[in-house]
Computed example of a mutant assay.
Amino acid sequence: MATSSAATSSIDMSTTILIRVDQSGRGGFKKIQDAIDSVPSNNSKLYFIWVKPGTYREKIVVPADKPFITISGTKASNTIITWSDGGEIFQSATFTVMASDFVGRFLTIENTYGSAGKAVALRVSANRAAFYGCRILSYQDTLLDDTGNHYYSSCYIEGATDFICGNAASLFERCHIHSLSTGNGAITAQKRVSSEENTGFTFLGCKITGVGKAVLGRPWGPYSRVVYALTYMSGLVLPQGWNDWHDYAKHTNVYYGEYKCYGPGADRSNRVAWSLSLSENEAATFLTKDTIGGRAWLRPAPSNFKRGASATIAARTDENN
């Protein structure tokens, strides 16, 4: 898990260094990756990379030695990061986050590889990462929510097969989860491997829709943990709700819970016996940001900006394009 070079408490959270990305040449950089590369290694200041509207055909990596970066569009609908790559789950991602204390805002991140195999749009392999108002699109393994504590707020996540997967501890709040599965695909494949791990996916106040039928999750790891709370479920959700991935032994170890969900897909009368209808007390731990320790690390949008990335750097970047 990536760690930051400076304690979060020592960072000035009110002021950030602003870097502009604009394909027209009016910003510091034309490419998002070039803007990321301009941030000093082991930085101890906030950097805000503002991406002007456009379609950016890039395969992006935020390296582990560059914490405290925000990458923000204005609207996800007009700020699109796109690539097409498939095959290997850890290498195919359009956008990879390895650095701690990362924030993504108002971006579309997509992998257009299609339905031929594994094709990750977003890989998050770092601690303390948050995404607000983003659209994350692919087909299989769309969001590789790999490791760390993560927060997704008002995001739209689309795919067909295991399209939210990994072993992070993540809270999805007010997100729209849309399945493209036409058969019996799974929305989640959570990979918790022991009862000692404090990982799992929580969907709080979300909306589940789709074009066919799907289950809420299946166990990538033997102690897989997923909870849906106060969430709307359309008729997409199959009556059994969950799948054991043909491994009956996992019935006694997985933690698959539902709490006060509603809609035609929330009917638990035919759910598998090894899933849980949570009581108010059992659900309480999943209903706040405390489930990811969020009160200690989630930061507000900055209010003060300082200029970064000089014109000289931008000119040098343009020459290399």
Rank of each mutant, 00 (worst) to 15 (best):
W83Q: 11
F106D: 10
I81H: 04
F95Y: 15
T112V: 09
I81F: 11
L137C: 07
D146L: 12
G104A: 14
F95H: 04
T108K: 14
M98Q: 14
T96R: 15
T79W: 06
T96I: 11
G117P: 00
Q91E: 10
D85P: 00
W83K: 07
G133C: 03
D145E: 05
V103M: 12
T79L: 06
A116V: 03
E110M: 12
F106I: 03
V97D: 04
V103D: 03
R123F: 06
A116S: 11
I136K: 10
T112A: 14
G87V: 03
I136T: 06
T108D: 08
V124G: 05
L107M: 02
I80H: 06
Q140N: 09
D85M: 09
S138E: 02
L137T: 14
Y132M: 05
D101H: 14
Q91L: 10
R105A: 06
T94R: 02
T112M: 12
T82H: 02
N111F: 02
A129F: 04
R135M: 11
R128S: 08
G86P: 00
A129S: 11
Y132D: 05
A99S: 12
F90P: 02
Q91T: 09
A116Y: 13
L107N: 00
A116D: 13
Y139W: 12
R123L: 12
D145H: 07
A126P: 02
F102L: 09
T96V: 10
G87K: 08
Y132A: 06
A93Q: 07
S100E: 15
T112N: 13
R123Q: 14
T142G: 00
D145S: 13
G117V: 00
G104Q: 01
R105P: 02
Q140G: 04
V124E: 02
A129D: 03
G87M: 04
K118G: 02
E110N: 11
S100M: 10
Q91F: 07
A93W: 00
V103T: 15
N127I: 03
V97M: 11
L107D: 00
K118W: 07
V120Q: 08
D85V: 01
L107V: 00
V103N: 09
M98F: 13
T112H: 05
L122Y: 11
W83D: 15
F131M: 14
Y113T: 03
E110C: 11
E110V: 04
L143N: 01
